[in-house]
Nucleic acid binder design. Structure first.
Lengths: 336, 336
DNA sequence: GTAATTATAGGAAACGTTTGCAAAGTTGTC
DNA sequence: GACAACTTTGCAAACGTTTCCTATAATTAC
């Protein structure tokens, strides 16, 4: 059995409340007593029980982070930022990967709430928070990162997706590519929808009509990008350029293009979104929209910390802060 | 305030022990009562407090996973396997990223232990477990993954690193490259050391002397691979081929080679280790040693589960199981 | 109809902490 | 040397559950 505070008390011949105070560096305990307690604690290999502590103190110094896909390098980058900022502030991050399953996302959020994390950072899969709503509903500080459910009241950090989509598309248009295709995700992805809006806007600005033939949807994974592009090529409906809603899509599409014996950008130019580390490899050189991932993570944690430390009461998010970061177009070989 | 079991009891006019039984589907509660409890629980949005539960039941259905670098795609792949297997068995995984800091690794392990996770999976940074020893010491089921401290008694899954290093080096030798350099990590990395042993063995087998001029050490990151290679080239000590101890190193080295105006493999051939997803991109085509990452994760969890469910007592790991997976050489363009 | 058995419910202890309050001990002041 | 002020300590309640034990109610057996 693990040693408890009472074991220390017994060995030191004092009450366990004193031990508790000594261990926690509370005011009002004799230095000699404290020293003794500390020594004994060390001797018997005492490790505080955070669970018991959390029960009474209501604070666990723990936050939950739920992401949809740990294998998409975008998220580890964001998580890294969160983790660093959290560590600096004495918080632990429990990272959970829902693997694009809404059920699992909901389940994880529930489980984290049950474990009484002090707050939650979520990069949600879809545009609604139905399931989460009842769980979170004003009870737990929440911050969304990278993507936020529509009409949420909670705080979030994201990038200006519309502008990002606009910049990417505009770049392709201005370089004379035509037609320009689009690969997005399923309808309820805010991220994808907003980037599509940017795509539309660019078309409008240059008075180009959108041809739905070149609009496709996938699931944010490389394989999906590959399959879509392959099909387009086989169907003879491949565009002259492609704006893919994330880098993994773009990478997949590029593989398909090359597998079909075509060149990038010679036959089809490609622009992605995120600027994951691979994109900048010399062999890859993917034109993309940079998201400040690490910084986004840091901001997310800072916002959450703020919510945890302030309010302590109302977490409906009525006064949620929204931080929108600027996207940046990074032109590389895949589009020039 | 969150609703508790007592609120339900009050509303239903029954004792809270009955509520507890009803909620947990225990035998011996009237179906009508149970139904009522469930209804009320739903009405007032009750969410069990896993902390309180964990305090008495000693089981948290939670495991901790500590990895050194979430940004190295190798680890997300492994984590994915663990996560999947855990989910299937009703366990939650708390993923913690130590970011190559031994202090943080130790701290995270400690924190997870304090939170009374049911078990721990660790991909340790170094070859010793000094810090962890006292924390874990027969108290908590532990499984190491991918790398294990030397002389550990605990269970682990890893790959046959020596053989992997051997295969990689042999491949380069047989293709006539010479001299063949090596980029490894600092001395206390078991992984790196073992792969180096494989490198040595291949040299022995072909009776080639090792020239230390071509042996360098870094920190497992891409940048480090870049810097090392760049320096080699500048110093005029660059080998004809390079075996890098992981893919990130290899990728970094390749960047440096190309930045210096040289070709891969024309001027310098490169072999990595891990087969992270990037390696197989057509533009990259990195020859490497495949590790079955996902499977490794699954096995790690299964071993841990076994330890959790069986023993329940002695976790010194005396009868630890060791699973060594077979590495596979994947030949791609970077070496032919 | 009574005793035995079973189904259901409640009471209370326990898990390992923190913390408010009161008691005891120490020091200082005059 | 007495009283105040302060320091140090202990006691006990509380946190939200689970679970053991006991009590009551309902059912069955005869």
């Amino acid at each position: 059995m693990r040693a408890t505070i009472k074991d220390i008390a017994a060995k030191a011949n004092i009450s366990y409340s004193t031990v508790s105070r000594a261990l926690n560096n509370k005011y009002g305990v004799n230095p000699r007593t404290r020293e003794k307690v500390l020594r004994i604690a060390d001797e018997i290999n005492y490790l505080p029980n955070a669970i018991a502590r959390g029960l009474v103190s209501k604070q666990t110094n723990t936050i939950g982070l739920v992401i949809p896909d740990i294998r998409n390098p975008f998220f580890p980058e964001v998580a890294s930022g969160i983790g660093e900022s959290a560590a600096e502030n004495g918080y632990n991050v429990f990272l959970c990967d829902s693997n694009w399953s809404k059920d699992r996302e909901e389940q994880y959020i529930k489980l984290l709430a049950e474990r009484r994390v002090d707050g939650l950072i979520v990069a949600p899969i879809g545009d609604s928070i139905d399931g989460l709503k009842t769980i979170i509903e004003g009870m737990l500080p929440v911050v969304y990162v990278s993507r936020a459910p529509v009409n949420t009241n909670h705080s979030y950090v994201a990038i200006d997706n519309v502008r990002g989509g606009f910049l990417a598309t505009k770049h392709l248009i201005e370089n004379g590519y035509e037609p320009i295709g689009f690969i997005g995700a399923t309808e309820d992805s805010v991220t994808s929808n907003e980037r599509y809006m940017g795509y539309q806007r660019a078309f409008e600005q240059y008075s180009i009509p959108i041809d739905n033939k070149f609009i496709r949807n996938g699931d944010f994974k490389q394989k999906s990008g590959y399959d879509i592009m392959q099909k387009m090529i086989k169907d003879g409906t491949s565009p002259r350029a492609l704006f893919a809603v994330n880098d993994l899509f773009a990478l997949g599409a590029i593989q398909a293009i090359k597998d079909a014996g075509l060149r990038v950008p010679g036959d089809i130019a490609v622009v992605g979104f995120d600027d994951i580390p691979v994109a900048s490899l010399q062999e890859v050189q993917l034109t993309t929209i940079l998201q400040p991932k690490f910084q986004m993570g840091r901001i997310a944690f800072e916002m959450l910390l703020e919510a945890i430390e302030s309010g302590k009461k109302d977490h409906s998010g009525k006064n949620g802060r929204k931080v929108i970061l600027e996207p940046e177009l990074i032109v590389r070989k895949s589009s020039r």
